[in-house]
Design a protein around this nucleic acid. Structure first.
Length: 342
DNA sequence: TCTGGGGTCCTCTTTCTC
DNA sequence: TCTGGAGAAAGAGGACCC
């Protein structure tokens, strides 16, 4: 029987900010965008105090400001959060070398081969992160990643939750389908429309029906996930597949100079990111979102792998020429994919 | 003045190659 | 030379995650 932990940092960005600015402790803190709630941008993280006002991640900053004008709004400081994140991950790796990074504030840890009890290990992890970094996390313990992740979400912040093999019916099935990893707003809306609201109700649907509706890949996934089945291993090493930059204009624009200058800047950043990480790529994709939120992409695969700013820029502008700019542009982006190590 | 940015993966369609 | 088909690769869009 595998034993998997899911470690989820509590309101991570806000916690890091409160740690380096202790005067913010106990106050509603909202991290997002440039930190200016009158500008375009969304909430990355809200402290638990801010959540009491209804503020949550992905909410527009302007909406958050309306809900709680007295909140402290701060810009996202990825460098600092990455630094603290690396310290957390180092602590985790001391407990088990089998660790999967899930973004900046989450990780899975496989502790199957460690003799100590799961709960004991989890408490030690929480203690060390608290004493060394002064931040809290929530941990879920289960026999696979899927259930460990659901578990860590059940009690927050500073929680510790165990889901045992026999607990699926009792603990998982009453939960909303949205709690399943991989079920987002679209699938939730669809499932609701056919009267499926809980994971248990999803588990009652025959496999053939799920495959008919969602295709073999996702259909099979939903069938197994709703039963708490997940054999997927921890991914301890991974290579990037693409590198991209995009930006939303503060005001929608149809000024060609602005659009062109911005795209040139973005391709330069992507090229620099590639050089910095030591990758070269083959396909350049540009992305444009118009003021009506309609989004288009155009891609071109080059003859050779490259990290050259000039080549990437030229290829990007070729693709830009294939999109009619008849509406105002809200967002523009550039991506290089098909990466390999230089 | 609703709706970020950086990713992955999947599906469907089109294009290329044999 | 024409036609058709199969399979791979590329392109486009969309859902999802943090």
């Amino acid at each position: 029987m595998r034993r998997i932990l899911h470690i989820d940092m509590d309101a991570f960005f806000a916690a890091v900010e409160q740690k380096r600015h202790p005067d913010l402790i106990g106050k509603p803190v909202v991290i997002g965008g440039s930190g200016d709630p009158t500008q375009r941008g969304v909430v990355s993280t809200a402290s638990y105090e801010a959540r009491k006002f209804g503020i949550h991640s992905a909410m527009p900053l302007r909406t958050a400001y309306k809900l709680c004008p007295q909140a402290v709004f701060l810009p996202v400081d990825y460098e600092e959060y990455s630094r603290v994140s690396a310290e957390v991950k180092n602590i985790l790796r001391e407990f088990s070398p089998i660790m999967e990074d899930v973004g900046i504030d989450e990780a899975f840890l496989d502790i199957s081969d460690i003799p100590e009890a799961s709960e004991e290990i989890s408490r030690k992890i929480k203690d060390r992160i608290k004493s060394e970094l002064d931040i809290t996390c929530s941990i879920g313990i289960a026999g696979n990643k899927l259930l460990a992740k659901i578990a860590s979400d059940l009690r927050k912040p500073d929680g510790l939750t165990i889901i045992n093999e026999g607990d699926v019916e009792k603990i998982i099935w009453p939960l909303a389908v949205r709690k399943l990893w991989g079920v987002g707003p679209k699938t939730e809306t669809y499932l609701r429309s056919i009267n499926i609201n809980t994971i248990g109700e999803l588990a009652a649907i025959p496999l053939e029906k799920l495959i008919n509706h969602f295709g073999p890949s996702y259909g099979n996934y939903l069938y197994e996930a709703s039963r708490g089945i997940d054999e997927s291993p921890l991914v301890t090493h991974w290579e990037p597949k693409s590198s991209s930059r995009e930006t939303t204009f503060q005001r929608d624009t149809n000024d060609w100079q602005t659009i062109a200058r911005t795209l040139a800047g973005l391709t330069k950043e992507v090229s620099e990111d590639l050089k910095h990480s030591g990758y070269i790529g083959k396909t350049v994709t540009i992305k444009i979102r118009f003021d009506d939120f309609k989004t288009y992409t155009r891609a071109k695969t080059m003859d050779e792998f490259t990290d050259s700013n000039e080549t990437i820029r030229k290829t990007a502008f070729e693709s830009l020429g294939r999109i009619k700019l008849e509406k105002k542009v809200r967002l523009i982006g550039a991506r290089v994919s098909g990466l390999k190590k230089k």
